[in-house]
């Protein structure tokens, strides 16, 4: 192949139809309070990890719903499970169990 000096840019558009939503389904089954989330960001504002990394539980829930699993998988390990988000959440989302559910669901689905 000739050296063009550039590569075809990667498409960053979410292709909703091609993304699998299995991980979200598995997580929602384990922790149905995820449906209560209104994307307010209270969790991320108080989160220790979010102060120093790009981690955001609010974003992670949306990424799950859109099937952007790769980003969820790289992101979820940043949580230190302190539980501050659960105190802050105005909607009663069981955030600690949500994060554990995401981790367990990832393990389960990666074995399949």
């Amino acid at each position: 192949m000739p050296d063009f000096g550039y590569k075809i840019s990667k498409d960053r558009q979410i292709n909703f139809d091609e993304n699998s939503k299995n991980l979200f389904a598995e997580v929602a089954m384990r922790e149905p309070s995820v449906y209560r989330c209104i994307s307010c960001g209270t969790c991320a504002a108080t989160c220790s990890a979010a102060q120093f990394t790009s981690y955001s539980l609010r974003k992670m829930i949306l990424l799950l719903k859109r099937g952007e699993d790769k980003e969820v998988i790289t992101s979820v390990s940043r949580c230190m499970l302190c539980g501050k988000c659960q105190l802050a959440c105005p909607m009663g989302v069981n955030t600690r169990n949500l994060i554990l559910s995401i981790q367990n669901a990832i393990k389960k689905l990666s074995h399949v």
């Binding site: 063009f4 000096g5 550039y6 590569k7 075809i8 840019s9 990667k10 498409d11």
Partner: peptide, 14 residues
């Protein structure tokens, strides 16, 4: 700008 051509070709590809 040569550095932007990856974006140009990606648009055509789309």
């Amino acid at each position: 700008v040569k550095a932007n051509r990856g974006y140009s070709v990606a648009s055509s590809k789309k």
